[in-house]
């Protein structure tokens, strides 16, 4: 946990870092006081604004009946038992997990590739930097409306281009959002496209933190480029990649406005994820109890993912500091 990036590859840098502060005593105590002082504003802000909604939600999960929170009564695990027998919950859960695994992988791979390219020094690379930013700063909800427009089978731009290229007949346009399969894949593509920017930005910042001397040392040792990438760049980037993956996973599990404005969960319920189902139960139906039970399940799933990532992060750090 206390290791810096620079100790990662011991063959190359001898700049080792001792575990920073082992000794306790008056110095350690003043450090601890200082740490809590620095933490207080964040903890206060979270307690004031963040904790109340979270706790009410968890309480609601164990209540039943009611309408938008009015006339609720204690229900024990009723809502969770209902979850077990609700096919919509299971299909939404399945879609959420699939969406998260596929889009986060896609974003990580494409975002890292984009960052590696944008990190090269070549004339005109600002275009690439702009290309990284654009998808991301278009407001998500608006962007989904634009994509829906582009993929309309009649007046959409995509089919028009295909017709002009003689790849499609004008009388039999492809209905992109008409089948479960193509709508699902389009959502995945849209989600990957929309957020690879965030990965690219973070990885780019991570890459800039890698000292060039390491690469020079590797070159002197005669390492090939693939070796350099696999044995220097990737391990040094690992902490950044894990943090990025944590962020993307949390957000993908909670995805909402991208999907509701693009397919509204359709056709049928084939692209309905947990976010949409929670929205239906809480905002549309006023079922605070049942909706909050789904929220609770989603929180537990998120926790599992995050703990897995963070333990990987700690493990990689721990093994480095031993070396």
């Amino acid at each position: 946990m206390q290791t810096s990036l620079f100790t990662t590859s011991k063959e190359i840098t001898q700049a080792d870092e001792l575990p920073r502060r082992q000794k306790l005593g008056p110095l350690g105590r003043s450090e601890e006081r200082f740490a809590w002082m620095m933490l207080t504003p964040v903890l206060l802000a979270l307690l004031l604004v963040g904790v109340y909604p979270a706790i009410t939600s968890i309480i609601y999960a164990f209540e039943k009946g009611g309408y938008y929170g009015i006339n609720m009564s204690f229900g024990g695990f009723t809502n969770f038992v209902r979850l077990k027998n609700d096919p919509q919950f299971w299909s939404s859960l399945k879609f959420s997990l699939l969406y998260t695994v596929i889009t986060v992988s896609g974003q990580m791979i494409l975002g890292t590739a984009l960052a590696l390219l944008a990190n090269l020094n070549f004339p005109g690379r600002w275009v690439l930097r702009a290309a990284i930013l654009f998808p991301w700063v278009i407001p998500t909800a608006t962007n989904s409306v634009i994509w829906q427009y582009m993929f309309n089978d009649q007046y959409g731009m995509v089919n028009s281009v295909l017709i002009h290229l003689h790849l499609m007949s004008a009388t039999h346009p492809v209905v992109w959002l008409g089948t479960a399969q193509s709508a699902t894949w389009l959502i995945f593509i849209l989600a990957i496209w929309k957020a690879n920017s965030l990965v690219a930005l973070l990885v780019l910042a991570g890459l800039q933190g890698i000292p060039t001397e390491i690469y020079e040392a590797a070159r002197v040792d005669g390492a090939t480029h693939i070796q350099t990438f696999a044995r220097i760049t990737l391990p040094l980037l690992m902490p950044t990649l894990l943090v990025t993956m944590t962020l993307r996973t949390i957000e993908s599990l909670q995805a909402f406005d991208l999907i509701i404005a693009f397919t509204n969960g359709g056709p049928g319920i084939s692209t309905q994820n947990l976010g949409l189902y929670i929205y239906t139960q809480i905002s549309q139906y006023g079922n605070y109890g049942y909706g909050s039970a789904i929220v609770t399940v989603l929180m537990v799933i998120t926790l599992v993912f995050v703990v897995a990532y963070l333990s990987m992060l700690f493990r990689s750090n721990a093994s480095e500091s031993r070396g």
Partner: peptide, 25 residues
């Protein structure tokens, strides 16, 4: 950069808010 007790727990508490979907807040 600082050493203090309950660090991991505090970090998890800080992150925990993001596990709670804004949708439900």
């Amino acid at each position: 950069r600082l050493k203090f007790r309950l660090k991991t727990l505090t970090l998890v508490f800080t992150l925990a808010l993001s596990f709670f979907p804004p949708l439900a807040q």
